[in-house]
């Protein structure tokens, strides 16, 4: 019998809220998660994403709203009665137990027969590719191996829902990429729903089926990675998704002013003439001889296949752009952007 997530149809968060004293850490989070779905909770630190995860795990009680697993209300259950797997940011491996004991802990708590536990530990070790490390103590493992043990320990209880709290933040860049693929592979293998907290938009884009962008305790946007990448619903979401150029401007006759030049853009939502925020990714702003915006290069970072540059336009505004051509400080270049990739939001962003 292979390790597979317990069957369920849907996890439903209904107006999930939590406050600490007078601080509203989480306000009315509503979300439906299907079995097999990989959801990333994305946002800057302090946005409430970890609070949301702890509420789901039962480590924090809700101050409002409810959580449902199919027809069962679970937000009043203690963490030990929910049966969700959780992977902690610091892994939280039991330092006094060897790898096998750590992984088998959940099953031992359920009172499973010893032979079954041992067989499932072997299976879990194989899933996370840690065969032969079973007798070591956590302190003898590398960060990446500890991470694998933490994942094995969480999935062995066959949870309907796996919760991960920035699991890759303590690993180096190479290992992070490797473990990212591993996490998605394991998720697909056991078929649970996974809720994955991160502040790294690249991680969220590459891992998740759907991304929930949070800010100050509120869900700002829910969407698939391409939706969020191409069309963030709000200027602040755009900023978080890598739209580094956020320019205050004025919409007039379908055109906005960027760096002193009038260019066309794509309105997000219904907006009329007046104050707007223009959002452009540095990747979408490139050098062209007939480009409308002239800037003087202030810095150019070498990124291997491209240069990541900042330049100053005639009206004093700073613009970030990328180019494949070598540019030097002080050069004057002309920039252009596809109007479809110039997003316009109502109101002036901060």
């Amino acid at each position: 019998m292979a390790i597979a997530a317990r069957d369920f149809k849907e996890l439903r968060l209904d107006g999930m809220s939590r406050n600490f004293g007078t601080v509203n850490a989480l306000m009315g989070v509503t979300l439906n998660v299907r079995r097999g779905e990989f959801i990333a909770l994305l946002g800057p630190s302090g946005c409430g994403k970890s609070t949301a995860l702890n509420c789901l795990a039962g480590l924090l009680t809700l101050s409002g709203g409810s959580i449902w697993l199919d027809q069962t209300r679970i937000d009043r259950l203690k963490p030990e009665d929910r049966g969700f797997g959780m992977v902690f940011q610091n892994y939280a491996l039991f330092p006094h137990m060897n790898v096998r004991k750590n992984i088998g802990f959940g099953l031992a708590m359920q009172g499973a027969p010893k032979v079954d536990i041992e067989r499932k530990i072997d299976e879990a070790l194989a899933i996370v590719r840690l065969g032969g490390q079973g007798e070591k103590l956590p302190g003898q493992l590398s960060g990446g191996q500890q991470q694998r043990v933490a994942i094995a320990r969480a999935i062995i209880i066959e949870p309907p829902l796996v919760l991960m709290d920035e699991p890759l933040s303590n690993l180096d860049a190479k290992l992070r990429l490797e473990m990212r693929a591993e996490i998605r592979r394991i998720h697909d293998l056991i078929g649970s729903a996974t809720i994955y907290v991160t502040h790294d938009q690249e991680e969220a884009l590459s891992l998740a089926d759907r991304i929930v962008v949070m800010r100050e305790g509120v869900v700002r946007q829910v969407g698939t990675p391409p939706e969020l990448y191409a069309q963030p619903a709000h200027a602040d979401v755009a900023e978080f998704m890598g739209y580094r150029n956020l320019i205050r401007s004025h919409l007039d006759g379908g055109k906005v002013t960027v760096g002193g030049a009038a260019i066309k853009g794509t309105p997000i939502g219904a907006i009329g003439n007046g104050a707007v925020t223009v959002a452009i990714r540095p990747d979408d702003l490139t050098i062209a001889n007939d480009g409308p915006v002239a800037v003087k290069v202030e810095s150019a970072q070498y990124h291997g296949n491209s240069f990541y540059c900042s330049g100053r336009a005639g009206d004093g505004s700073e613009l970030y752009f990328t180019t494949e051509h070598r540019v030097g400080k002080g050069d004057t270049v002309r920039l252009i952007a596809d109007p479809k990739r110039v997003l316009l939001y109502a109101g002036a962003a901060s």
């Binding site: 795990a57 480590l59 203690k78 030990e80 939280a92 330092p95 802990f105």
Partner: peptide, 25 residues
């Protein structure tokens, strides 16, 4: 580390088991 006890709880250990298997050792 309080997260050790939390981890034990999410793995189904009740207060008594958390004390016996995690805190006490």
């Amino acid at each position: 580390d309080p997260s050790l006890e939390q981890a034990a709880a999410t793995l189904g250990a009740k207060a008594r088991a958390r004390f016996r298997y995690i805190l006490m050792p």
